[in-house]
């Protein structure tokens, strides 16, 4: 009995020792900076520096300014639209690569899916702005086909398109990883038992690949809602998002406490998304 307890203690210490580097990394590069940011969000900017007495005034200011709340709503709306669209586009693409395509072509297809990651984020956004511009590539094609021009530049639609292009490819990778791990026998067994292709997908494939979808969707949500570059370049200053508001506080007002408060709010939104995903994924 005593020996069993000592083995358990030893195992626990070993596990702790093994986890220590990861814990130290998280503490140093996430927990500590977040604590500093959360503390700074309780300060106030003054003419001469900061009033460091803790107060919730920055948060009260956020709720009292409709433009600030609107920016948060814009961010959530854009992010949800991008996440849904990316999942809808990425799943069939991942399915084609993982299931329909002969194995020898999969690497090429995956490489093509990864190519957008090779270019800089800023360059990619500017490239989209040239495609979607009033006199851009897209409207050039439409005009060549005798169709009317689309007014997509400098709009929420442009932001969503730019984001979706990037995140669809990210989601393809996570969904592909789930699909290739799924034994082919499961689909064959379902077919043997009389399930149609749709029923097999609906009741066998989809539930088993949902973790990959959820992880990709959460990554998309977290990266998209915190992104400054794409809404700034493609939105044309017409759809203020929360990261742009954070930048305005830093570059225009030098109001770091308010920027910290807005960043904490951004963090809360990501946490809520994570909790929603975790609850949805919990086995029933």
């Amino acid at each position: 009995m005593i020996r069993a307890a000592s083995i358990e203690t030893r195992d626990r210490r070993r596990a702790l020792a093994l986890a220590a580097p990861a814990l130290a990394w998280t503490a140093a590069f996430f927990a500590l900076p977040f604590a500093v940011m959360a503390t700074a969000s309780l300060w106030r900017r003054t003419d001469t520096g900061f009033d460091r007495r803790p107060s919730l005034e920055n948060y009260a200011d956020f709720w009292s300014q409709s433009a600030y709340v609107e920016a948060a709503v814009n961010s959530v709306e854009i992010t949800l639209a991008v996440t849904c669209l990316s999942v809808l586009l990425a799943y069939p693409l991942a399915w084609i690569i993982a299931v329909e395509l002969p194995e020898r072509y999969r690497r090429i297809a995956l490489a093509l899916a990864v190519i957008p990651f090779w270019t800089s984020y800023v360059v990619r956004s500017y490239a989209w702005s040239l495609v979607l511009a009033k006199k851009g590539v897209l409207n050039g094609w439409l005009a060549a086909w005798g169709l009317g021009a689309l007014d997509l530049a400098n709009s929420r639609a442009a932001t969503v398109i730019g984001f979706t292009h990037f995140f669809t490819m990210l989601l393809v990778l996570t969904i592909y990883a789930s699909l290739v791990q799924l034994p082919r026998n499961l689909r064959l067994a379902a077919a043997d038992l009389g399930a149609s292709r749709f029923q097999t997908f609906r009741f066998v494939v989809l539930p088993l690949t949902l973790p990959g979808v959820a992880v990709g969707a959460f990554l998309t949500f977290a990266l998209c809602i915190g992104d400054y570059v794409t809404p700034q370049i493609l939105g044309g200053g017409n759809d203020l998002a929360l990261p742009q508001l954070v930048m305005l506080q830093i570059s225009r007002r030098a109001d770091l406490p308010m920027a910290a408060a807005l960043s904490v709010i951004l963090m809360v939104l990501v946490t809520l998304a994570y909790l929603a995903m975790a609850r949805w994924m919990r086995p029933r």
């Binding site: 702005s129 009033k134 400098n154 370049i233 200053g237 017409n238």
Partner: peptide, 19 residues
């Protein structure tokens, strides 16, 4: 009536490209 609100580079691009 504005198509965009942009900083220096975006402003120059908007008028230079005929946007």
């Amino acid at each position: 009536n504005a198509s965009s609100v942009g900083e220096v580079v975006a402003s120059q691009t908007a008028i230079a490209t005929g946007e």
